[in-house]
Simulated assay, not measured.
Amino acid sequence: MPPRSDDIDPREFRNALNENGFAYLGRTVDKFVDIRFPKAGRYFEPVKDARKRTLRRETLARLMAARHSAETEAAQTAAEAARKQAVAAAIAPAAHPPCRASLTDAAAIAQLADDFVLQSTRAEGVVRFDLILLGWQPSQLDAHADAARMLAYQRQEGVAA
């Protein structure tokens, strides 16, 4: 059967489907699927004329329009994720203390002393597990705990025992 004058021929249609990432699911299903943006249950009906013949040009246009809406939806989802990530990055420094594992010597002692002062205001006092949760390594606590404790007492104008 020759192609209708206002439609593209079947070979061009098949090539256009392949180039644009669409697949035809067969005559029994008679639906198309977007391979580049797969989504369960998202199938596309072909455009048909009154005699139930597939209008290839209109079907391809409908598939491309559906692709455009899927791309727009994906872009909106990515923009929303980026917005959420920016908000999380803005509040993360307040929510999570900086990592202390990279601190050494005087910087480690000064920060550990500050943490001792902060932790001593709680009813439980300074607990090793809480310091590890703040980012301290056990080896750092073993090496600098005594010096940091004395510095913390001095900063609170207490007397080191």
Results as ranks from 00 to 15, higher is better:
residue 44 F to K: 01
residue 44 F to G: 03
residue 44 F to A: 10
residue 44 F to S: 02
residue 46 P to D: 06
residue 46 P to Y: 03
residue 50 A to K: 14
residue 50 A to F: 12
residue 50 A to Y: 12
residue 51 R to H: 13
residue 52 K to I: 06
residue 53 R to T: 12
residue 53 R to H: 05
residue 53 R to C: 14
residue 54 T to H: 06
residue 54 T to A: 00
residue 57 R to V: 15
residue 59 T to G: 00
residue 60 L to E: 10
residue 60 L to F: 09
residue 60 L to R: 11
residue 61 A to L: 09
residue 61 A to E: 09
residue 63 L to I: 02
residue 66 A to E: 09
residue 66 A to T: 09
residue 66 A to C: 13
residue 67 R to L: 13
residue 67 R to T: 05
residue 68 H to F: 11
residue 69 S to W: 00
residue 72 T to C: 04
residue 72 T to N: 10
residue 72 T to K: 02
residue 73 E to C: 10
residue 74 A to Q: 04
residue 74 A to G: 07
residue 75 A to C: 03
residue 79 A to G: 01
residue 80 E to H: 01
residue 81 A to R: 02
residue 81 A to C: 03
residue 82 A to K: 01
residue 82 A to D: 06
residue 84 K to E: 01
residue 86 A to M: 00
residue 86 A to P: 00
residue 86 A to Y: 00
residue 90 A to S: 08
residue 91 I to H: 03
residue 91 I to A: 01
residue 94 A to I: 08
residue 95 A to L: 15
residue 95 A to Q: 10
residue 97 P to I: 07
residue 97 P to R: 15
residue 98 P to H: 15
residue 100 R to W: 01
residue 100 R to V: 02
residue 101 A to R: 08
residue 102 S to M: 10
residue 102 S to F: 10
residue 102 S to R: 09
residue 103 L to H: 06
residue 105 D to G: 09
residue 108 A to D: 07
residue 110 A to N: 15
residue 111 Q to E: 10
residue 111 Q to C: 04
residue 112 L to Y: 01
residue 113 A to F: 13
residue 113 A to H: 06
residue 113 A to W: 03
residue 114 D to A: 07
residue 116 F to A: 11
residue 116 F to G: 11
residue 117 V to T: 05
residue 117 V to K: 11
residue 119 Q to F: 11
residue 121 T to Y: 00
residue 124 E to D: 12
residue 125 G to C: 15
residue 126 V to C: 15
residue 126 V to F: 06
